[in-house]
Design a protein around this nucleic acid. Sequence first.
DNA 1: CATGAATGAGATTTCATTCAT
DNA 2: CATGAATGAAATCTCATTCAT
Lengths: 206, 206, 206, 206
Amino acid sequence: MGKVTRRERERQRHRREILAAAQDLFSRKGFDRTSMAEIADRAEFAVGTLYKLFEDKQALYRALILDTVREFEAALSAALNARGSEIEKLERYIETKADLFVRHIPTARLYFGQTAAAQCAPTVGLDRAARALYEKVLDRLESLFRAGIRRMLFVEVEPKMLALGLEGISNAFLPALVERPDDFSADEMAALTKKIFFGRVSLKAE
Amino acid sequence: MGKVTRRERERQRHRREILAAAQDLFSRKGFDRTSMAEIADRAEFAVGTLYKLFEDKQALYRALILDTVREFEAALSAALNARGSEIEKLERYIETKADLFVRHIPTARLYFGQTAAAQCAPTVGLDRAARALYEKVLDRLESLFRAGIRRMLFVEVEPKMLALGLEGISNAFLPALVERPDDFSADEMAALTKKIFFGRVSLKAE
Amino acid sequence: MGKVTRRERERQRHRREILAAAQDLFSRKGFDRTSMAEIADRAEFAVGTLYKLFEDKQALYRALILDTVREFEAALSAALNARGSEIEKLERYIETKADLFVRHIPTARLYFGQTAAAQCAPTVGLDRAARALYEKVLDRLESLFRAGIRRMLFVEVEPKMLALGLEGISNAFLPALVERPDDFSADEMAALTKKIFFGRVSLKAE
Amino acid sequence: MGKVTRRERERQRHRREILAAAQDLFSRKGFDRTSMAEIADRAEFAVGTLYKLFEDKQALYRALILDTVREFEAALSAALNARGSEIEKLERYIETKADLFVRHIPTARLYFGQTAAAQCAPTVGLDRAARALYEKVLDRLESLFRAGIRRMLFVEVEPKMLALGLEGISNAFLPALVERPDDFSADEMAALTKKIFFGRVSLKAE
DNA sequence: CATGAATGAGATTTCATTCAT
DNA sequence: CATGAATGAAATCTCATTCAT
């Protein structure tokens, strides 16, 4: 099977090269303003080759999104499933997400654009599979909050809402990060997120 | 002058009708996937008429975004400039925003898509004027936080970051709102936002 | 009939104003690149008014061309019908044409574009009537040459060809005139035309 | 290199086919009244193919004009640079031009429309490069006349004007040629041109 | 498999013409 | 009559997709 495997390895390498080119273009210009010819150019393949490896433009995009969300989901789920208290797990989650954002902004933009922002800032219909992966993360967050509330670690707020709230804050600095990448470190972003989310902003008793 | 005024009134009415049609379509499908023909159809005008009232597609979009952001900016600035302590002003801000979101989801989607999400989820180049209006709101928030910190109402965190954080949370429930509009009231959304942002989620001392 | 006459006078004045605006635009930009709205603007009328006075754009153009060619034809025919020998008549013709060219370049451009250049540099289908007027001039020239040859004033060359040749030379300086209107006087142009056409350029016997 | 060459050869063949179709249409109907769809139809390609080979409609037109003027310039310059006296060179020039006109009327129409008639009958902005080529011919003519005058072969008239005058006559029969192609031979046209230009039309001393 | 020329549907935009006021 | 808003056909141009080499 050496032959098949070599072929298959090549195929996968080409696939990755194409996706890398596509990531850069899609993350900067969006789906509609990126043409297949551009992607092909950038990846140094002919358009026909893109169509050999992906059904059509949507499929290529879906594959890219799936890769992106999968990468995030893997790292974030790992953080959420690590040892420790609910608070420790969430802190790990926040740190991981900040790290992912800072280390690979294009991926972050795609992730954000396809998850939190997806229903609001209208984009190309996001993939079922990608959506499901993100929901898995959201559900895990919700469970953690529910458990934490039961153990009286967190205030009594609908856990689903806490999960969305955490997403909101942990995404909040992404626009600033995109604009001035050098002004942000992952550590700072994580620290900020934790302080605002877990601490109290207001110093007076409510 | 009846004649001039009547003509002009009609013109403005048509302009509004076209913008209304455009708002619905753009907010659901985005700039690129909405065609001028569709907008014309929906507004019950001929394409040519759109071009009489707007230079081109971009101009129509810009006008819509400007209207949208202006509407939000006016309401939010009013809230931020009302009487009261810094906390009260911010609470008013949160309530106003929640109210705007719940009462007019398409506007909210456009607002969100063109402000917070703009740098991340790549959209059509947003208007200078609209951007400036949003920055005005952000700056006002920042000032409020700065003043509040000086008066020891808020924790010592860079005020700009607090402003971004507040934006993050107050936008956090919009995706959920878009998906199930009937499950959310403005009051609940505002209450949630305040609780998470001002209160402490974690009950243990950090 | 005072009333009808006043109306009619007004109507004719408006007609002339519109044609004046149209002349400038058509002569500089050509038929296709001049819009009815532009002509209306320039003439300070509404588009509707243009359509009250002219069937459609073609008709307006035809009317303009007819006016232009009529003006030329009148002056040129007068020159050709004046007293004198064939040579004197032709000299008068050349002087008149040079004078018309120099004094009103836009008219000259339209005249040239619709007569000599018409079959070659493709323009909008020229009017039958205008064509007929020009042919009248050509025919008159031909007769003059024929008579002149009979009286042994001119070389024996097909008179039609002499007429075309004269047209060729008398038009030859128009491009230069259009480019640098101040470098040419009617007298010089006429003198040049006569020298080349009637005299001999070559000094050796053929 | 067979592969590269074959592709490129095909490409050039298609380019020529498109230009041929365009030449026919442009020379008969002009730039504005010829649509890309028509050219595509006539050339039996899809519109998209035209845009693969030419930036846009203007570029296609420019390419055609450049080809046309280049072809003429090459032949005419060759005639002007051949051996012989100034008179012989000019005679060769006249013969060559007549031959080009008679043998390929569409090319002649485009050449005339873009050179002599260009400033008068308003056309689409003519190409710098094409203009420069024509000026080269004009300059060469001027030099020849200047030299000839010095050698007392020609009358003392500004050489530039003699050049324009020769152009005027040598173009003079083109309209007639276009209308009745079968009535003209290149030899006759050339003979006529020479007789009128070099000889004297008038038999009396001026 | 890889290639990239060819396709043609569809989008944006212009403008001659009409017609209600 | 004058007006100019409204119309919609037609033109230019782009780009996802196919397919012969």
